[in-house]
């Protein structure tokens, strides 16, 4: 096994949760987060999660993404490159967001969260008087 492959394996090793409320192995989903003038967009890869198993919470400035995977295994294993586990990840968000207007969408195993910024956090153009 090459060093690169070893590193890749370690990458995919599920990590423990940051908090101790529940035990068990979890996977940390890969995310893209980008910010525009109007809102903050978060996209997370969570293959195997359906709408019922997904739980997104935003409280006290902490965004918690929880995804439950239920996959039935069929037959006898010949080759296994991934094991399914539940997804869990937390983010600390700034207070300048509009939590009420947040929208979540789950399509093709990708979660897309759109979090609008609060009025006070939007960039303002200041006109210069001549």
């Amino acid at each position: 096994m090459t060093a690169q492959e070893l590193a890749k394996r370690q990458d995919s090793t599920p990590t423990r949760r940051e908090e101790t409320r529940t035990a068990g192995r979890v996977l940390v989903p890969a995310v893209d987060i980008f910010e525009s003038d109007e809102n903050l967009t978060l996209m997370a890869d969570m293959p195997g999660v359906d709408k019922e198993g997904l739980d997104v919470k935003l409280e006290k400035g902490v965004l918690t993404i929880n995804g439950e995977v239920n996959m039935e295994s069929r037959g006898k294993t010949l080759l296994q490159e991934f094991t399914s586990a539940n997804y869990y990840r937390q983010f600390k968000l700034s207070e300048h967001i509009d939590a009420e207007m947040t929208t979540a969408e789950l399509a093709n195993g990708v979660l897309t969260l759109r979090i609008p910024k609060a009025e006070s956090a939007k960039p303002k153009r200041i006109e210069i008087r001549h």
């Binding site: 996209m43 890869d45 969570m46 293959p47 996959m71 295994s73 069929r74 037959g75 006898k76 294993t77 010949l78 080759l79 296994q80 490159e81 991934f82 093709n108 195993g109 990708v110």
Partner: peptide, 21 residues
């Protein structure tokens, strides 16, 4: 990443391809 399983009648392949049409 793929998983390959088999039983008497079939081979089963699972591939992780999120976010693809």
């Amino acid at each position: 990443r793929v998983n390959l399983n088999e039983d008497e009648n079939n081979y089963y392949i699972e591939a992780l391809v999120p976010g693809i049409d």
